[in-house]
């Protein structure tokens, strides 16, 4: 089972992101579940949503306590300290920021966290292509670029279904760019490692 937790702020499409990720996971052949953690929070308040992939039907209704993956849609949430709570050792973190891993770890006071930390300027990309700070599609594509259980094609299909027309195309373009960005970063990192 893979458990993913998404952190963001009200209005960023955190709940939509979890639902779209579940749909993309279903297209990849998984049993899936998406659970929003709803509050009475308004626009701008911290919001959390969960997603699970598994091979057998998912029965539990427990919130994700020990995620394998944490997606952070807003770097200003890092300082609050709880976004990496329960992260499985060797887990994956993807943060929507123009900064790098070192800055993320510093902001979260997580210099020693046993995790792969990736960054992608998802909001910046989406602002440029869509004109709105809705980084969900780009973040999901970044996840697809760094994990093996969801494909970019599945993400694009889900995004286009969720947002028909021009909005969907702009989101899809942002997703493709975020996917390419992460793949290049990982290739560059691999070169550094191999050098």
């Amino acid at each position: 089972m893979r458990q993913i937790r998404i952190h963001g702020r009200g209005g960023q499409g955190v709940v939509t992101a979890a639902e779209m990720l579940a749909r993309a996971g279903f297209l990849a052949g998984h049993e899936v579940q998406a659970i929003p953690s709803f509050g009475s929070e308004r626009t701008g308040a911290p919001v959390v949503a969960y997603c699970r992939f598994a091979d057998a039907p998912l029965r539990t209704r427990e919130p994700v306590l020990a995620p394998d993956v944490v997606l952070v849609q807003d770097p200003t949430l890092l300082a609050a300290g709880r976004v990496f709570a329960g992260l499985a050792p060797g887990g994956l973190v993807i943060v929507d920021t123009a900064g790098d891993e070192r800055e993320v770890r510093a902001a979260a006071h997580a210099q020693d966290l046993d995790a792969t930390v990736l960054t992608v300027p998802a909001t910046a990309i989406t602002l440029r292509l869509l004109g709105k700070p809705k980084p969900a599609a780009a973040m999901l594509a970044a996840y697809a670029a760094s994990a093996d259980d969801v494909t970019l094609d599945a993400v694009l299909q889900v995004v286009r279904e969720r947002f028909p027309g021009a909005v969907g195309e702009a989101n899809a373009a942002a997703a493709e760019e975020a996917f390419a960005f992460v793949r290049e970063e990982r290739a560059a990192a691999a070169e550094v490692r191999d050098a």
Partner: peptide, 8 residues
């Protein structure tokens, strides 16, 4: 728990 959760 159910109304807002997404399932297969």
């Amino acid at each position: 728990v159910l109304t807002h959760a997404t399932d297969v």
